[in-house]
Measured scan of single mutants.
Amino acid sequence: IGSLMYASIFGNVSAIIQRLYSGTARYHTQMLRVREFIRFHQIPNPLRQRLEEYFQHAWSYTNGIDMNAVLKGFPECLQADICLHLNRSLLQHCKPFRGATKGCLRALAMKFKTTHAPPGDTLVHAGDLLTALYFISRGSIEILRGDVVVAILGKNDIFGEPLNLYARPGKSNGDVRALTYCDLHKIHRDDLLEVLDMYPEFSDHFWSSLEITFNLRDTNMIPGSPGSTELEGGFSRQRKRKLSFRRRTDKDTEQPGEVSALGPGRAGAGPSSRGRPGGPWGESPSSGPSSPESSEDEGPGRSSSPLRLVPFSSPRPPGEPPGGEPLMEDCEKSSDTCNPLSGAFSGVSNIFSFWGDSRGRQYQELPRCPAPTPSLLNIPLSSPGRRPRGDVESRLDALQRQLNRLETRLSADMATVLQLLQRQMTLVPPAYSAVTTPGPGPTSTSPLLPVSPLPTLTLDSLSQVSQFMACEELPPGAPELPQEGPTRRLSLPGQLGALTSQPLHRHGSDPG
């Protein structure tokens, strides 16, 4: 009997000691992992102490058991019943959930998450997105703005933001810190809205009876308010094209079509300037034949640059190039080494500058006005007194259609001029006259002087055409309008007829 009692007592005591040691061994194993994590990542002392304290409290609170892992091991129907039991206190005593059906309560219970916070733990920081609604079931918390405590909340209090009033989550206007050990039930806004969409009859009752104890939403960050730039940057990543407008005076608003859609830094370009900076079609017209890549860069430059609305530039004389043409100036200075066709295309550029300027006046029909002061630039669209967005969009579309028509007509005119030049060069190729044979009589004449090349004649003739079109064909006081194609086609051969009437002889060394 004594040996039996000794064996039973010894066996029970050893089993008890073994169970104690097993729990202690698990605790030390998990604690060792936490300390190894702290050492590996070199976490500083204040945060390291918070980690160790939280682990110790969580171990004593749950005995080292992962409740979520245990809950996920059950089937979904059983999980709903378990969640309904775990959140029964909240669902029974909170006013917004009263009167809900059994199915609605089960769906809500599945969406709730339980959070346990030790003292000093910050649940929400200032500036964080308010993605959830919090219900306090135990403990107390404090809300701070800077170093000032603005509120202390306790059991059955609710904090967050009214989700039904805002389409997008706002930002917190303060820090939420736990004063004691707290148990909180939180539900994400997407989950709550999903359940309320499934039960629309409960939705009206819920929003009407929901009383948020403390609204954390920062009202200064609401979209459309003066301080909402940061919020707009976070939620409006896919922005449309940006529009900046110059201020319109009362006198300017009476004149229709007073602005032109141009790229940034293009205030001095012609009315047909689009795409790359520098001139019509993204580059100076005089350098068009020598740089074919300008047409390839036109599309990307047009689509990537934001639109700006600026006044037209001052008018340019008909014979003056659009500006920024070092290529043609070098050719004029060193005409001995340049291609003979460069002079002809220089005359073509003069005609283009004249036609572009006159067509700009035809479509816009307003006098040039000086540029406004820099303080009046970049007025935002949302400022008071601005035109409605639809009106601005319609004006932009009208300007775009005008620019497209202008570009089409300029292309047709350019093709006409090039065809005339090619026809003239085919009839009378460039050549130098040879020395004529002296006559049989004693009164022999001296050799004839060489005839100037055709490109120079073409430049003079085209300059005469531009001056003739600019000065004589337009009646005084009438708006400057571009001439039609047949009129220009008839004027060019008439001007060139006198020049080509002389018999030109080919030089023996000319390969053409």
Score class of each variant (00 low, 15 high):
127 G>A: 02
129 L>E: 10
131 T>M: 09
132 A>W: 05
137 S>D: 07
139 G>V: 02
140 S>W: 08
141 I>H: 01
146 G>N: 06
147 D>S: 07
147 D>F: 02
148 V>F: 10
150 V>T: 04
150 V>W: 04
151 A>Q: 03
154 G>E: 07
155 K>V: 10
155 K>D: 12
155 K>W: 01
155 K>A: 11
157 D>T: 03
158 I>L: 07
161 E>L: 02
162 P>N: 08
163 L>W: 08
163 L>M: 10
172 S>V: 01
172 S>R: 01
172 S>A: 10
173 N>V: 11
177 R>M: 05
177 R>P: 02
178 A>V: 08
179 L>H: 06
179 L>T: 08
180 T>D: 04
181 Y>V: 04
182 C>T: 09
183 D>C: 08
183 D>R: 10
185 H>Y: 04
185 H>Q: 08
186 K>M: 14
186 K>D: 04
188 H>L: 12
188 H>W: 01
189 R>N: 07
190 D>I: 07
191 D>H: 03
191 D>A: 03
196 L>Y: 02
197 D>R: 10
198 M>K: 10
201 E>H: 04
204 D>I: 06
205 H>K: 11
209 S>Q: 10
213 T>L: 02
216 L>P: 01
217 R>I: 03
222 I>R: 10
224 G>Q: 09
228 S>R: 09
229 T>V: 10
229 T>A: 09
230 E>D: 07
230 E>S: 10
230 E>W: 13
232 E>M: 10
232 E>C: 13
235 F>C: 08
236 S>Q: 10
236 S>R: 11
238 Q>P: 12
239 R>M: 09
239 R>K: 10
242 K>A: 12
245 F>Y: 14
246 R>L: 13
247 R>V: 11
247 R>E: 15
251 K>G: 09
254 E>T: 08
256 P>G: 07
257 G>D: 07
258 E>M: 11
259 V>D: 10
264 P>F: 09
265 G>A: 09
267 A>P: 06
269 A>P: 09
272 S>Y: 12
273 S>D: 13
273 S>F: 13
285 P>W: 15
287 S>A: 06
287 S>G: 14
291 S>M: 13
291 S>A: 05
291 S>W: 11
292 P>A: 12
296 E>V: 08
297 D>I: 11
298 E>Q: 09
299 G>Y: 15
303 S>H: 12
306 P>F: 06
306 P>M: 06
316 R>Y: 12
317 P>G: 08
318 P>K: 04
320 E>W: 07
321 P>V: 11
321 P>H: 15
325 E>T: 15
325 E>G: 13
326 P>A: 11
327 L>I: 11
328 M>Y: 10
329 E>V: 11
329 E>G: 06
330 D>E: 14
330 D>K: 08
333 K>F: 11
333 K>M: 10
335 S>K: 15
335 S>I: 07
339 N>C: 05
339 N>G: 12
340 P>S: 11
344 A>Y: 09
345 F>H: 11
347 G>Y: 09
349 S>R: 08
353 S>W: 03
361 R>Y: 09
362 Q>I: 08
363 Y>S: 12
365 E>T: 07
365 E>K: 15
370 P>Q: 10
370 P>L: 09
371 A>Y: 11
371 A>D: 09
374 P>N: 13
376 L>F: 09
379 I>R: 12
379 I>V: 10
381 L>V: 13
382 S>M: 15
382 S>A: 05
382 S>V: 09
383 S>Q: 15
383 S>N: 15
384 P>N: 05
386 R>W: 15
386 R>G: 09
387 R>S: 12
388 P>H: 15
392 V>I: 15
393 E>D: 11
394 S>M: 12
395 R>K: 13
396 L>M: 05
399 L>P: 02
400 Q>F: 05
400 Q>D: 13
401 R>C: 05
401 R>S: 15
405 R>M: 03
406 L>R: 03
407 E>G: 10
408 T>E: 05
409 R>G: 08
409 R>P: 02
412 A>Y: 05
413 D>L: 03
414 M>I: 13
416 T>L: 07
416 T>I: 11
417 V>N: 04
419 Q>M: 11
423 R>E: 04
424 Q>D: 06
425 M>W: 03
426 T>F: 11
427 L>D: 03
428 V>H: 11
429 P>K: 08
431 A>T: 10
432 Y>A: 14
434 A>L: 11
438 P>T: 10
440 P>N: 05
442 P>F: 09
443 T>Y: 10
444 S>K: 06
444 S>H: 10
444 S>A: 13
446 S>G: 12
447 P>L: 09
447 P>F: 08
449 L>E: 08
455 P>I: 04
457 L>E: 07
459 L>G: 11
461 S>Q: 10
462 L>A: 12
465 V>W: 13
465 V>M: 15
466 S>V: 08
466 S>A: 11
467 Q>K: 11
468 F>M: 07
468 F>A: 07
470 A>I: 11
471 C>S: 10
473 E>C: 13
474 L>T: 07
476 P>S: 11
476 P>T: 07
478 A>M: 15
479 P>E: 10
480 E>T: 12
482 P>W: 12
482 P>E: 14
493 P>G: 10
494 G>P: 12
495 Q>L: 08
497 G>F: 04
501 S>R: 09
502 Q>M: 13
505 H>E: 06
507 H>V: 09
507 H>L: 03
508 G>S: 08
509 S>Y: 04
512 G>R: 14
